[in-house]
């Protein structure tokens, strides 16, 4: 239990819309151990970003919200803590890397001053000391000429460099947990690999745990120790990365894995999961994935499957997981 850094229990997020409340995340449970990298995978709109924003306490109030459940971090339930407490851990023991480095840095300030700021919010630190540390951080994340770059504005840097700056900013206070929300989606492929390598390196030196939010199974394979697959606001499968790839137990995960393009072998039409993510306001009864599932039976239409533990650490929310596993054995 002590190795647990973050423990999310029954997290539920509702947004109020003109058509009534919409549940974007439905009783999600997961945990993150110290120093491990956990992947959170799913299609756009499945609630993975909202879950991470809820952990950071950053869901904006205007599309009025209701958050239920518990988020335990450093022996405190974040959902019960004051905004001031949340602010004091944000960027300090928990930080975030955003998807689009192009728009995530303030264009009116130098990158250096923005990294300094991350430290100054949480520590009493002299300006020149902050500057020294920022330059050191820029060097650590692989930016050449950090003394020069420190004084530059975001528009003078390339996308990859800006993402490195974002990472430097996230590392400024040695956080125990970094939430990386699709950190490589907006970058081109060669830069993607560099950024992933950098994150892997930094995890080893800084010992921070990382929640890697992505829809790219390739990124998962390369970086994560453990994976959680989200569909329509629920976690449908959770397993150590290797197990997930070898013994896929949920039809949705299977679909995701089959939709990865392969370079070797014959050219075949790329698989895609039929249909699209259901709208939150008319969620299908029973299993939420059944309208798109090739294994679906009448049972799936009527009753929501419980979460079963197939092996230690491998949990799945499906009535027919045995069939899914059996099929892979056969192929």
């Amino acid at each position: 239990m002590n190795s647990r850094l973050l423990d999310v229990k029954g997290l539920t997020v509702q947004f109020h819309t003109p058509d009534g409340p919409v549940e974007v995340v439905s009783s999600v449970d997961f945990h993150v151990n110290k120093g491990e990298t956990v992947g959170l995978v799913g299609e756009s709109g499945c609630g993975k970003s909202v879950s991470s924003m809820a952990i950071m306490g950053l869901i904006p109030s205007p599309p009025a919200k209701q958050i239920g459940g518990e988020i335990w971090f450093q022996e405190k339930n974040l959902l019960a803590e004051s905004p001031d407490y949340l602010r004091s851990i944000r960027g300090n023991s928990m930080s975030m890397i955003f998807q689009d480095p192009m728009s995530s840095l303030d264009p009116a300030f130098t990158v250096g001053s923005q990294i300094d700021e991350a430290m100054q919010f949480h520590q009493k630190i002299a300006a020149n000391e902050a500057k020294e540390r920022s330059i050191e951080l820029l060097r650590r994340v692989g930016i050449s000429n950090p003394e020069l770059r420190y004084h530059e504005y975001p528009h003078q840097l390339s996308g990859g460099m800006r993402q490195r700056v974002m990472i430097a900013m996230a590392l400024a206070c040695n956080p125990q947990l970094i939430i990386a929300d699709e950190p490589t989606t907006a970058l081109d492929v060669t830069v993607q690999a560099q950024i992933l390598d950098l994150l892997n390196d930094l995890r080893q030196t800084f010992g921070s745990a990382i929640i890697m939010i992505t829809h790219d199974m390739g990124v998962v394979a390369e970086t994560c120790d453990r994976v959680m697959v989200m569909y329509a606001g629920q976690i449908v499968e959770e397993a150590p990365t290797e197990v997930l790839f070898d013994q896929t137990a949920h039809p949705y995960t299977e679909g995701l894995l089959r939709s990865i393009p392969k370079i070797s072998g014959k050219k075949v039409k790329l698989y895609s999961i039929p249909g699209s993510v259901p709208l939150q306001r008319d969620m299908p009864k029973g299993c939420r994935f059944h309208p798109r599932c090739s294994y679906a039976t009448s049972l799936c239409q009527e009753k929501e499957p419980p979460i079963q533990e197939l092996a230690p650490g491998h949990r799945v929310k499906c009535w027919h997981s045995d069939q899914v596993i059996a099929k892979q054995g056969g192929v």
Binding site: M56, L58, S88, R90, F98, S103, D106, E117, F121, M169
Partner: peptide, 17 residues
């Protein structure tokens, strides 16, 4: 509404900043 405003909040900046 811009993303970088969210970044500053994520860094722990007060509303005043």
């Amino acid at each position: 509404k811009q993303d970088y405003i969210c970044t500053i909040r994520a860094k722990g900046g007060t509303e005043k900043v």
